[in-house]
Design a protein around this nucleic acid. Structure first.
Length: 313
RNA sequence: GCCGAGAUAGCUCAGUCGGUAGAGCGAAGGUCUGAAAAACCUUGCGUCCCCAGUUCGAUUCUGGGUCUCGGCA
């Protein structure tokens, strides 16, 4: 049985999903998607999900896809949940005697799949609420002070609310600093092997594709999804985890912004996001970069031409 | 055609009482272990429109020119 996983990475709109699909047909593979927005059942268009099927295992062109529709918009879901799911589905795929393609743009999820995560106990809802409430009451600077009084070793950016909140949650819940947990339970890899391919486009061309994709989403019902999300009254910070655009569409629905302004901001922020993804991927020397500007078939052939002693297609 | 206002970073503009300049936005680069399309960090030499004059020195003052935007015809 194979234990090699083909990973297809790249910035948003670089064509990962399509290439993965075509590759899967050639090598008899299942696909697992590492995308932190496509996990939500209720939203499809603004997350670039390839179908609007709502079941957890989706068939697209007869290829089995995992990683969509894992939870609802009001559920808590995080990397650790994704990693568990990934390991389960990878086992399942290899038991079927099929290949597996991991396709995704969420760097954190990909890293977790490839390098593992330190085991840290789950944080209770009470602790989470307590820390968040404190953050709202006293602000970031004070929160960082509270953290420092308790945890002197975790090295983090104290201007970054997410990191400070996380570190404080871990300490309050376990009485052990986050950095200590990392030391006690270092990341452990699974026994899967990974061969990573990155789809590469000239920046200008990538940006054009992003702009077009935003137009496409808006023409195909993303606004309806924004109306749906609006009902939940997520705060600005909460809404962004579903995708860049929804926040601005809700501003538009609230009359705080005109439609074109919302559209342009969506495009700009998606471009900025793509840049961040590339920054993340660039540092990984194990990625084989493939030209994604050529015809799909040629890109595919380039992947398939990869030395067979390394990958048993 | 006349009368005003303007021309400075990719864009919008500030400024230099004459000693070659700085904000916002955009852009680029970076960080990343349980909200990650999140959150955060760093980065500003540009014929200061052109030509001449005054001056030790002009992006700044003076004259002329070019272009842009208003208003009046």
């Amino acid at each position: 049985m194979s234990n090699k996983i083909i990973v297809i990475v790249g910035a948003t709109a670089s064509g990962k999903s399509k290439i993965s699909l075509e590759l899967a047909k050639k090598i008899n593979a299942n696909i697992i998607n590492a995308d932190s927005r496509q996990i939500y059942k209720e939203i499809c268009i603004g997350t670039a999900k390839p179908t609007n099927q709502t079941q957890e295992t989706v068939f697209w062109d007869e290829i089995k896809h995992f990683g969509f529709n894992l939870c609802g918009v009001y559920d808590n879901f995080n990397v650790a949940n994704f990693l568990d799911y990934f390991n389960e589905k990878a086992e399942e795929t290899f038991e079927e005697n099929k290949n597996l393609i991991l396709c995704g743009g969420t760097g954190l999820y990909l890293d977790a799949c490839i390098f593992g995560l330190s085991k840290i106990p789950e944080i209770s809802v009470e602790t989470k609420q307590k820390v968040r409430k404190l953050y709202e009451e006293v602000g970031l600077e004070e929160l960082a002070k509270v953290l420092r009084q308790n945890d002197k070793i975790t090295n983090l950016d104290e201007k970054n609310p997410h990191r400070v909140i996380r570190a404080l949650e871990v300490f309050l819940e376990t009485k052990i600093p986050l950095a200590k947990w990392h030391e006690l339970n270092p990341r452990t890899k699974t026994n899967f092997e990974f061969e990573i391919f990155g789809l590469e486009l000239e920046r200008k061309k990538l940006y054009e594709k992003i702009n077009k994709r935003v137009d496409f989403m808006l023409e195909n019902g993303m606004l309806e999804e924004a109306k749906f999300l609006k009902k939940f009254n997520f705060k600005d910070e909460g809404i962004t985890k579903f995708g860049i655009g929804y926040r601005y569409l809700i501003y538009f629905l609230d009359g705080k912004m005109d439609f074109d302004e919302a559209k342009e901001l969506m495009k700009k922020e998606t471009r900025n996001y793509a840049k961040r993804q590339l920054t993340w991927l660039r540092k990984d020397e194990n990625i084989h970069w493939i030209n994604a500007e050529q015809k799909e078939k040629e890109t595919l052939d380039e992947i398939l031409a990869f030395p067979t002693e390394k990958i048993d297609f």
